[in-house]
Amino acid sequence: MSTTPTSSPRTVPCPPSPAGCGAPAGASCTSHGGTRERHNFHRARTAALEAARIAAVPAAKLVADTGAWVRHGKHAADLLDKNGFTVEAEQLRRAVSEANGHMSAKQAIAFLVDQAQGGEG
């Protein structure tokens, strides 16, 4: 079973003000100084969830932390191959090929996270 956080921002705490409201994990975000429960989440909380999902997958974290030179899925696959993630690199190359070469590094990271969660990609 995967240890990657689920897809709900509620599973991570909301960052403190001014970016968020500081709601703990499991609680709803609030607005108006904590007097009203929000029906959605602060952007910072959604970003924190995405960062947690990426951090839980070493191959995706490597690509995300590398920097601006990795701009394409092919570059991400080459980086993974050079750093010992040969299985992930081959899966990513196959996905880039199936997408007719149209895959950004951001899409490659999302693909790697989805694969780690047992998704089809």
Results as ranks from 00 to 15, higher is better:
residue 81 D to Y: 00
residue 85 F to S: 06
residue 83 N to S: 04
residue 89 A to F: 03
residue 93 R to M: 02
residue 77 A to F: 01
residue 106 K to R: 12
residue 98 E to V: 01
residue 104 S to A: 07
residue 104 S to Q: 05
residue 66 T to I: 05
residue 102 H to A: 12
residue 76 A to S: 08
residue 84 G to M: 09
residue 74 K to T: 15
residue 89 A to H: 01
residue 72 H to T: 15
residue 85 F to K: 05
residue 76 A to F: 01
residue 80 L to M: 14
residue 84 G to K: 08
residue 79 L to M: 06
residue 78 D to A: 14
residue 104 S to N: 05
residue 75 H to F: 10
residue 65 D to G: 08
residue 78 D to S: 12
residue 89 A to Q: 04
residue 77 A to N: 03
residue 84 G to F: 08
residue 85 F to W: 11
residue 67 G to A: 10
residue 99 A to V: 03
residue 102 H to Q: 14
residue 102 H to S: 14
residue 75 H to K: 14
residue 87 V to Y: 07
residue 73 G to I: 11
residue 79 L to V: 09
residue 88 E to N: 10
residue 81 D to W: 00
residue 101 G to I: 13
residue 94 R to N: 12
residue 64 A to S: 12
residue 83 N to L: 01
residue 93 R to K: 14
residue 105 A to F: 08
residue 71 R to H: 11
residue 66 T to M: 08
residue 64 A to F: 07
residue 70 V to Q: 02
residue 75 H to A: 15
residue 83 N to Q: 11
residue 99 A to Y: 10
residue 89 A to C: 07
residue 77 A to P: 01
residue 66 T to K: 07
residue 88 E to T: 02
residue 79 L to P: 01
residue 94 R to P: 00
residue 91 Q to F: 08
residue 84 G to Y: 08
residue 67 G to I: 05
residue 90 E to S: 13
residue 80 L to C: 09
residue 103 M to T: 04
residue 94 R to W: 09
residue 77 A to S: 07
residue 70 V to M: 07
residue 63 V to G: 00
residue 106 K to V: 05
residue 65 D to F: 02
residue 74 K to Y: 15
residue 81 D to P: 00
residue 103 M to V: 05
residue 86 T to E: 13
residue 94 R to D: 14
residue 84 G to H: 09
residue 66 T to D: 13
residue 105 A to L: 07
residue 72 H to V: 03
residue 89 A to N: 02
residue 80 L to W: 07
residue 83 N to Y: 00
residue 65 D to R: 13
residue 78 D to W: 09
residue 101 G to H: 11
residue 96 V to K: 04
residue 91 Q to L: 11
residue 74 K to R: 14
residue 102 H to L: 04
residue 85 F to P: 07
residue 79 L to K: 02
residue 104 S to P: 03
residue 101 G to T: 06
residue 75 H to E: 15
residue 98 E to I: 07
residue 64 A to N: 11
residue 73 G to R: 11
residue 101 G to R: 08
residue 69 W to P: 13
residue 74 K to W: 14
residue 62 L to G: 00
residue 100 N to V: 09
residue 103 M to S: 04
residue 88 E to P: 06
residue 98 E to F: 06
residue 95 A to P: 05
residue 104 S to K: 06
residue 86 T to R: 10
residue 63 V to H: 00
residue 105 A to E: 09
residue 80 L to N: 06
residue 86 T to V: 04
residue 77 A to Y: 02
residue 92 L to E: 07
residue 69 W to S: 13
residue 63 V to R: 00
residue 71 R to A: 15
residue 95 A to L: 10
residue 102 H to G: 06
residue 102 H to Y: 12
residue 82 K to L: 15
residue 79 L to R: 03
residue 71 R to G: 14
residue 62 L to E: 03
residue 83 N to M: 02
residue 90 E to T: 13
residue 89 A to V: 02
residue 72 H to M: 05
residue 84 G to C: 08
residue 81 D to F: 02
residue 76 A to W: 00
residue 90 E to N: 12
residue 67 G to K: 08
residue 96 V to L: 05
residue 67 G to F: 04
residue 96 V to A: 05
residue 94 R to I: 11
residue 71 R to V: 08
residue 82 K to S: 15
residue 69 W to Q: 12
residue 73 G to S: 08
residue 91 Q to V: 03
residue 84 G to A: 07
residue 72 H to D: 15
residue 68 A to N: 09
residue 71 R to N: 11
residue 79 L to H: 03
residue 75 H to P: 03
residue 103 M to Y: 02
residue 100 N to Q: 14
residue 78 D to P: 00
residue 91 Q to Y: 09
residue 81 D to N: 06
residue 80 L to G: 06
residue 99 A to R: 15
residue 78 D to T: 15
residue 62 L to K: 01
